[in-house]
Design a protein around this nucleic acid. Structure first.
Lengths: 148, 148
DNA sequence: TTTCGTGCAAAAGCTTTGCATTAGC
DNA sequence: GCTAATGCAAAGCTTTTGCACGAAA
């Protein structure tokens, strides 16, 4: 269990607090998007968040989801996984870099247990002279379901 | 020095051989794109490859560069680094997964010395049940030039 | 000569933006 | 009441596709 993410509501509250502190308004639409991001066990796309919310918020626009996502990105409250050939995916539960295992058939994304990349990151900084601030480690393959 | 990539020409010849074996024609345009990919020390984009070739091939179209890149991808002869917010970048010298260090200011991409991820990959397979076939490890930061 | 590749222009897909309306605070 | 957020539609970008012409084997 992650100390920064004991329960979904705790994570939701953290996000809400961050927005309030930065003087952003908490609208029903924003609250709803945050709620999905704080509770999704998988890594939703903008499209899937929008689709999920349409039932309860029939006027919710895709633009609002995009704008909320960008706000959270800017505030460092979500992690964005970029894909050029399909839509991006987001992790609101663990907004810091961590490894992912991605099924290249169905798109399922799971988080394996934490790997410590600190030592490797330090080596990279020494070797390249970069000031490294983030990383991305993805394993691509076929998930157990798709293997059957 | 990499055993599969002793000289640029060796890499170019490997690519040419692969296309010939698969019964693709070697046109001047394809040769030119392969030449750039086999010789670029950085990780070019489709746009930059096209721009570089326009001098000597004034009729070279962006579509042809894209089509050649897709051909090489399909043949496993280049590695694609996907970015959703800017254009993709390609590595023709080392077409297999390996770590990259990426400057988030100027976009420079460099290859640090090889890290062995085999052990970690095996652990991932055991833990998740995935059949892992590839990976992506990127470190993001500010390069020495941009730090000044 | 037949088949494949090129290049143009149009289309596609995701994301952002402009702007008038609406709603937090 | 003031200012910021929403939602619609249009625009922007990268990448793909259709198709007629031209070139490789």
């Amino acid at each position: 269990m992650d100390s920064t993410n004991n329960t979904p509501n705790m994570r939701l509250n953290q996000m809400l607090e961050r927005l309030k502190e930065s003087d952003f308004r908490i609208t029903p639409q924003r609250y709803a998007v945050l709620h999905v991001l704080a509770n999704s066990p998988d890594h939703p796309s903008v499209e899937s968040i929008h689709a999920e919310l349409l039932d309860n918020y029939p006027t919710m626009s895709l633009a609002t989801v995009y704008k909320t996502i960008n706000l959270l990105k800017q505030e460092g409250e979500i992690l964005e996984l970029e894909f050029s050939d399909l839509s991006n995916r987001y992790d609101g539960k663990k907004p810091y870099p961590h490894p992912h295992v991605i099924c290249t058939k169905c798109g399922k994304i799971t988080d394996p247990s934490q790997l410590n990349l600190e030592e490797i990151t330090n080596k990279m900084m020494e070797e390249t002279g970069f000031k490294i601030v983030s990383h991305r480690l993805d394993f691509y393959g076929i998930c157990p379901n798709c293997l059957e």
